[in-house]
Design a binder for these strands. Structure first.
Length: 554
RNA sequence: GCCCCCGUAGCUCAGUCGGAUAGAGCGACCGCCUCCUAAGCGGUAGGUCACAGGUUCGAUUCCUGUCGGGGGCACCA
């Protein structure tokens, strides 16, 4: 019996009570009754506080209502006991024998186990990182890469179509600063004050000169453009290559320039006009975002005729919506949280419901310590911790997992030494080790000629306490994934994996899976082997949702 | 000044769509490998869930205020 089935059984029992006239619920029977796994074993396999919640509405003492529920619930197939505790909790035990069926179900579902259809038919856009193509990706981007990609993965697991998008700010004065900095370095000079001073600039300049020896002889204005464009291509290519190596692949790399070339900006302006939120003042073109709670109206085109960055953002949003995305999710760093109000107001100004179509997730900043000293992240200062360095130092799996196991909206302090330890100090190895151990058992079983037969094992033999605990852990995956997707909190998957790995290791410690020595394989061995195969599948599916590999051996 | 996030064990952090004894890892201490991977398992120690009110049968969780830490408030990009 899975939590979903138990939840449904409770709804059915409530409905029966209402139909029988035993209980009157003014608001009707709730569509869903939540069951949770109690912290304490004495509270059964599952528990619900539904009687406490409904007691008042029904005008019944919660304990009495719980008793009514319990009386009918014990008659349900798969439920072995239901008892009332405390003020009206209902503690439920499920039949140990029938629980084991889940193992076969999971093995047969394979990679699809844990997926739901909650968001089927939806098309969702997740934009993240969107770093300027004027320098390397750093630690902050690394966090958004992991979190954004994992969010996309868990949402996909609920049946939606997800487009991962990277917006490239390839237009504006920063690009010119970049070009001037490259040019200066190529001529052996210091970049200008407001330019880029990182060591990577000289490296890029050198590459550019190598590829285009004639570039240094071009007139200054042409040379600047040539450096800027060549640097852009190199830097953007590096972003893409590094992210790909980091298992973060984007579906769309969206150029800001293309918005201006495609007429998207004009279309967006027309949309705002249509909504009556466009006006001119002092020679500038404005959007009346204050109609929707923004602190002040925003300029789209300055009085000198230049379009603002916000004009691009608006056009970009309209373009996404025209491509059918609902919602458009933005992952922004905490340093951009001041931007949220105007983005929401902008969505309203083009006629959308900002609560529905535009969703902004704010990620807090990451600090990284090495031997007690904070490594600074400033891109311009040049002392950056880059994605490249982090991958080389820590490894893709450990880096991804470490960043994925915390909620994005909490500030984070990481220690290089802890992340690089190749031991269970790092939870990624704890989880991966479980997968390797599981794989090893399956290999050994194959060597012994014992097949995993998900269709014909005796599920009723899986009655050991540790087997029950493991089965109940495996049953949680769909709920965990659905919740992670709904809340955009993929770290829940990581925490779940750690919990499940622990439950497995405890099972392993007490329940020997395969025959020892000369023993013959029994039905219990075969049943446990199916459980092992199911567990391996669950761990693998969970790691996949985080973009972390599931090694067969360690 | 206004707005946002945060304050949970020595450290790094979970948990909180209100629930029954507040969790994990690290760090400290003590046990377990003739047996499927000891990167494992078991145990001990460690907390006024920042503080004060409020709502509730019940608050670490929701509301208000205070204190402390971080960030943001451009016809910038």
């Amino acid at each position: 019996m899975t939590p979903e089935q138990l939840s449904q059984a409770l709804v059915d029992v409530l409905t029966a009570l209402v139909d029988a006239g035993d209980v009157t619920l003014p608001d009707g029977v709730p569509a869903e009754v939540r069951v949770e796994r109690p912290k304490s074993k004495e509270h059964g396999d599952y528990a619900t506080n539904v009687a406490l919640q409904l007691g008042k509405k029904a005008g019944v003492n919660p304990r009495d209502l719980a008793q009514l529920l319990a009386d009918r619930l014990v008659a349900v197939d798969g439920v072995s006991a239901a008892e009332i505790a405390g003020p009206g909790f209902l503690n439920i035990r499920v039949d140990a024998g029938t629980q084991g069926v889940l193992a076969g179900t999971i093995v047969e579902a394979g990679a699809a186990y844990g997926h739901t259809t909650d968001a089927a038919g939806r098309s969702i856009n997740v934009e993240f990182i969107s770093a300027n193509p004027t320098g390397p990706l750093h630690l902050g981007h690394t966090r958004w890469a992991v979190v954004g990609d994992a969010i996309a993965r868990v949402i996909e697991a609920t049946g939606a179509t997800v487009t991962r998008e990277f917006y490239i700010n390839d237009r504006g004065v920063q690009m010119d600063h970049f070009g001037r900095s490259l040019m200066a370095r190529a001529h052996g000079q210091e970049p200008p004050e407001d330019g880029y001073h990182g060591g990577y600039v000289a490296d890029l300049a050198e590459k550019i000169v190598e590829a285009q020896p004639g570039i240094l002889d071009l007139p200054d204005d042409e040379q600047l453009v040539a450096f800027r464009e060549a640097g852009y291509v190199l830097q953007r290519g590096e972003h893409e290559a590094e992210l790909s190596e980091f298992h973060t692949d984007f579906d769309v790399w969206f150029s800001e320039r293309s918005l201006h070339e495609s007429g998207a900006v004009e279309r967006a302006f027309a949309r705002i006009e249509e909504q009556g939120r466009l006006f001119e003042d002092g020679g500038a073109l404005w959007m009346r975002t204050t109609d929707f709670g923004d602190d002040k109206d925003r300029v789209l085109r300055k009085s000198d005729g230049e379009l603002t960055y916000f004009a691009s953002d608006t056009a970009y949003y309209v373009d996404k919506r025209d491509r059918g995305f609902d919602p458009c999710i933005y992952l922004l760093g905490a340093d951009h949280h001041g931007y949220v109000g105007r983005l929401k107001a902008m969505a309203a100004c083009v006629g959308d419901d900002p609560q529905q179509q535009l969703e902004v997730l704010i990620g807090q900043l990451v600090k990284i310590l090495s031997e007690g000293q904070e490594l600074k992240l400033s891109k311009r200062a040049g002392t950056i911790v880059s994605l490249r360095e982090l991958m080389d130092l820590i490894g893709v799996d450990a880096l991804r997992y470490t960043l994925a196991r915390y909620p994005a909206d909490t500030p984070l302090t990481l220690d290089v030494a802890e992340m690089t330890k190749k031991s269970n100090d790092n939870p990624v190895y704890y989880v991966q080790y479980a997968h390797a151990r599981l794989s090893s058992i399956l290999r050994n079983a194959a060597d012994l000629g014992i097949a995993v037969d998900a269709a014909a094992y005796d599920a009723s033999l899986l009655t050991h306490e540790r087997e029950g605990a493991l089965l109940r852990a495996l049953a949680e995956l769909p709920r965990v994934v659905a919740r992670a997707a709904e809340l955009r909190e993929p770290h829940r998957v990581a925490r779940y994996l750690e919990d499940t790995a622990s439950t497995f290791h405890k099972f392993y410690d007490e329940c020997h899976v395969l025959p020892r020595g000369d023993e013959d394989a029994t039905d219990l061995h075969r049943a446990r082997l199916v459980l092992v195969a199911a567990t391996r599948q669950v761990v693998a599916n969970g790691l996949t949702l985080l973009g972390v590999s599931a090694p067969e051996r360690m």
